[in-house]
Design a protein around this nucleic acid. Structure first.
Lengths: 158, 158
DNA sequence: TGATTAGTTCGTTACTAACCGAACTAACAA
DNA sequence: TTGTTAGTTCGGTTAGTAACGAACTAATCA
């Protein structure tokens, strides 16, 4: 069972690395997803992941700030330690912001198309860019209400 | 106008770097998006981007294979040169595959939840993971038909 | 006040990725 | 067959990133 857990931690590590996190940041996420109880102290993370305090410190900071607040911590009265855990809420909030990513590509591509048309550059190519843009715009239009639809479904299920 | 074009090329470069491409790969995409006609030879790319032949060669290969076929080339009879251009079709095909990315995260998270439940780990945390999973699953369910809806819209507009 | 604990900061090392130039190959042209 | 052009491959340099240990700080405890 412990061995299986470690395998999961590494697999989560690989997945999250592909999302732009460092290997250790990925393993922290993995460890926190699989630990029981679902939070760990600083020292426990160092020991479990065989990592130095400095590396754990750096990566926890990253995950709490830049890393979209994927990790957060709580404290207990009369206890100096911090207890680190995954914030599923922030995780969800982050993936719901996916349309914003689209928006950025969309905007730049739109500007480029504007430039091409203003300078009367090759029409056929501009036309195919327009098609691509229309896809982005369609998604930008539809995704928010799709997300809302899910929100409502979730409320009803409760 | 030429200056404005270069600014665009760099901006595209930065955007695509954020998507995991190398700086030069990003600039190649930018140059090809803005060039008139909408294709360039190997040498023209070297010169325009002030890059070495080897770097251009490596990055074009990447963009044609691993890079989801974002770039392709064509040839002209009686002309040894290759003409490189953006494949908007492949670009579109690639973003339409977005649900597959979801699928991978979804599968791993599902396995983890299975592990947690099999070992009767903290119920509240597992419950919130379930909520996250339900979002992924909802999107996986709805996105394909949304994409199809766009396809139909496009056909009608023609 | 001094000792301990929790976590941070800093300087270094090891590794990887991006890019370059030079030498090379394959195809055609003279 | 020799030269030229288009592009590739290889080895090396440089820049950037991940991680470490040691020294430090801030808070608590005795």
């Amino acid at each position: 069972m412990e061995a299986q857990k470690k395998v999961f931690v590494e697999r989560v590590g690989v997945r999250t690395e592909m999302m732009g996190y460092s290997p250790l940041a990925g393993r922290i996420i993995g460890a926190l997803l699989l630990s029981e109880p679902p939070y760990m102290t600083f020292d426990a993370l160092c020991e479990y992941l065989n990592a130095s305090k400095s590396s754990i410190s750096t990566n926890l900071h990253f995950l709490m700030k830049e890393g979209t607040g994927l990790v957060e911590y709580f404290t207990l009265p009369g206890d100096r330690k911090r207890y680190f855990k995954i914030s599923i809420d922030n995780w969800l909030r982050h993936i719901k912001e996916m349309p914003k990513e689209f928006q950025n590509s969309n905007d730049l591509l739109g500007e480029i198309l504007g430039y091409r048309e203003a300078n009367q550059l090759d029409g056929e190519f501009s036309h195919s860019i327009k098609k691509l843009l229309s896809f982005y715009e369609f998604m930008l239009d539809k995704l928010p209400s799709l997300i809302e639809e899910w929100e409502e479904k979730i409320i009803l299920e409760k």
